[in-house]
Design a protein around this nucleic acid. Structure first.
Lengths: 259, 259
DNA sequence: CGCAAAGTTGAGATAGGTCAACTATTGTGG
DNA sequence: CCACAATAGTTGACCTATCTCAACTTTGCG
């Protein structure tokens, strides 16, 4: 269980970024209001008729290419981020300089909560594939929370869920259980977004998966091979298909929140 | 790393030591004036002059004896809890029925956040020693958040901190690092409350510590022994003294939030 | 096409778990 | 108040899941 270097975190290319626009903008300009952050990322947190107003928390939208850094440890925290497309990983940094991947973020999910406490980013967030994110101005989020009580609940629920997820995933489990639970979690989250959930692409590298699950990359490989041999999944490279979800469920233990 | 039963969560013994109660309050329920929750648990989150109003979120106050259950998994979630005195542990339940101790809660800390997501308790909370807790009506908390913007921030910060803590503590560390970090964390939190921080009592059992740190109780024992032999701490039973904080720091890695 | 990076597989090393015996606390009833 | 029972903690010996190191294969990219 002693550490391995696992630090490395994709280089910092800054992809071309979409226009930055202010909240109070004329009707014609849609880029940000089309984000539908409220509807997609905070379901049920905002009364129907007022979703549009809530979009004002979106200050900009940005496209990141694989490996691009959304934020770095130590930078000032001023926004949460909603993923519109693609996939990102968010990490916390361990003083040895090692980073631990707290979570992977799929479309419809919000990241950045771990940075609220210290008012600056506690880790890095990096795009794993070409991704689009909306910047949610945190001060605006707070201001809007005044108007829309349910927004507060929505935010707290997200924060609560991620705490719960982290607490459970890192639990007292062996490698097979962790990998199985991870696959289940991904599948469930894809389904929640209305996507194909039994066949998908593991955008993250084996090393990232290993880091997240606190395993050695070799162990992840071995477990995947084992699951494949048992006919539970089929996996060739990044492509994964869940063949026997029943059994995967059994291996993973109960469904976790988050997926 | 395979699991061990570790289920046991100190049953809800209601021992006969009820004798010494200050005023005749049935069920240990006390009047809730002067909890000073805002000042103690949410420092800086509420403007000076309005602290009193915020106290309205405290619906009751209750004394729990060691082993008493504050809430159980599955129960409806309607309050957060602020610890006034004593110490509690809060857990999440793993479908095998095993529970994982997410955290220990010292005076001045708030627990219950992990239950927000599912609107019912995801685990148990149990007093480790005689403790006093304030019930913070969650609906009232939400209502007050409308009035006091900074309260929202305070809540989100607490939620953020605990996510961060969990993410880091369960990290890629060996047994010595985990135990050292745990002791450091406790010490720091005691100091934050203005208490003796280099000499304190480990109210929780070795088994609880082990569960929290994802180690076997025997391993915790061995590590404590090792630290004692190296002169880093002195530990006899529950009494612990930090002899060489410098070195403990070195073993533990950097200071964690929460600690 | 060929190199670099990512992934797989094998063999051996080890941290920490398990089982078990023993000791120290704590609580209990006579 | 003491002896004893029950519980909690410590220590030792051994075992196993996972890590480490290393060779090899596949994939991706210029």
């Amino acid at each position: 269980m002693a550490g391995r270097k696992s630090a490395a975190a994709g280089g910092g290319r800054t992809g071309p970024l979409a226009a930055r626009r202010r909240s109070a903008e004329p009707d014609g300009i849609l880029p940000c209001s089309r984000c539908q952050v409220a509807a997609r990322c905070l379901p049920g947190s905002v009364p129907e008729g007022q979703i549009v107003q809530v979009e004002s928390m979106v200050t900009q939208q940005r496209v990141l290419r694989a490996g691009a850094v959304l934020f770095r440890a130590g930078e000032e925290f001023s926004s949460l981020f909603a993923v519109r497309s693609g996939c990102l990983k968010s990490t916390v940094i361990d003083v040895d300089g090692r980073e631990h991947i707290l979570n992977f973020h799929l479309p419809g999910e919000v990241l950045g909560f771990a940075s609220i406490y210290q008012r600056r980013h506690a880790g890095n967030a990096i795009a794993l594939t070409t991704s689009t994110v909306c910047y949610l101005s945190f001060s605006e989020v707070l201001r809007l929370s005044q108007q829309f009580p349910e927004l507060i609940l929505g935010l707290l629920r997200i924060a609560s869920r991620s705490a719960l997820y982290t607490g459970r995933l890192t639990g007292d489990h062996n490698a097979v259980v962790r990998v199985a639970a991870f696959l289940k979690s991904l599948s469930g989250r894809l389904r929640a977004q209305g996507r194909q959930s039994s066949e998908f692409s593991l955008v993250m590298s084996r090393e990232d998966i290993a880091n997240h699950l606190r395993l050695a990359p070799e162990t992840v490989s071995r477990v995947l091979t084992q699951l494949r041999q048992q006919g539970v999944i089929s996996a060739r490279g990044k492509a994964v298909r869940l063949l026997d979800e029943e059994r995967l469920q059994g291996l993973a233990g109960p469904m976790l929140p988050y997926g």
